[in-house]
């Protein structure tokens, strides 16, 4: 105790010595004499460092792109892993969640307000027109299966091409609808074509559907026409 004291360059309390002298007796009675300076075991320090390494690994592995827009935690670096093509019906079902509030899960719409998708000529008909509808939305009087609707169909341009194609494929093949799949390329070219055209009216949409598509976007032959 006094060794420690002498080797210590800083004198702490003048009366410290006496404090210790008075209490030697008390300290001997303690169950387990300790002095508060048990050193940190080396194994403990090594374990901590190994653990830190694991943390670093996790951070590198799940760090995404380390950019503001890297929403996916994998992959990073290395050869780009191409996401396997999604089943359009599955993806379409997910996207359709956004349509359900208006067109209903049954695809029958709400009479007088929202038109049906089941059996609709717009759904089963020209794919280019369907993509155009989804891309820009519709406003104003609109006739579906002989009924007139007058409300607003929002634009879905913020979805990816793949997602629009998937939801189109989904509505074309559900509730008894049967038609071929919507090609992603077609959605891509329609997106360019209709860019800046604004919401469709009944008339402008018909006009658009009547004009010939640019050569690249001709739908494959055999698509069911109304």
């Amino acid at each position: 105790m006094s060794d420690q004291k002498n080797s210590d360059p800083i004198q702490m309390h003048p009366d410290e010595d006496s404090v210790f002298r008075i209490h030697t007796a008390a300290m001997r009675e303690m169950e387990e004499p300790r002095d508060g300076i048990s050193p940190t075991p080396v194994s403990y320090i090594i374990t901590c460092f190994l653990y830190l390494l694991c943390g670093g690994f996790y951070m590198g592995y799940y760090g995404g792109t380390w950019k503001g827009d890297g929403l996916a935690e994998r992959p990073i670096g290395g050869p780009a892993v191409v996401a396997p093509p999604q089943d359009p019906m599955k993806l379409g079902r997910e996207i359709f969640n956004s349509c359900m509030q208006c067109h209903q899960e049954s695809g029958l719409g709400v009479p007088g307000s929202y038109p049906p998708l089941a059996g609709s000529e717009y759904v089963l008909g020209d794919k280019r027109r369907l993509a155009a509808i989804l891309m820009n939305g519709i406003n104003g009087d609109f006739v579906v299966k002989g009924q007139t609707y007058n409300s607003k169909m929002p634009s879905w341009a913020m979805l990816e091409d793949e997602e629009i194609a998937a939801v189109a494929t989904y509505v074309r093949n559900t509730w008894g609808n049967r038609a071929d799949t919507m090609p992603i390329d077609l959605v891509k070219s329609v997106r360019k074509e209709v860019d800046g055209k604004g919401e469709w009216k009944s008339a402008t949409l018909a006009e658009f559907a009547a004009t010939a598509p640019p050569a690249a976007a001709v739908p494959p032959p055999g698509a069911p026409k109304k």
């Binding site: 951070m59 799940y62 760090g63 792109t65 890297g70 929403l71």
Partner: peptide, 13 residues
Amino acid sequence: GPLPAWTITVGVV
């Protein structure tokens, strides 16, 4: 949530 993946990863670590 719609956060950059690394912000969450950093939080997890």
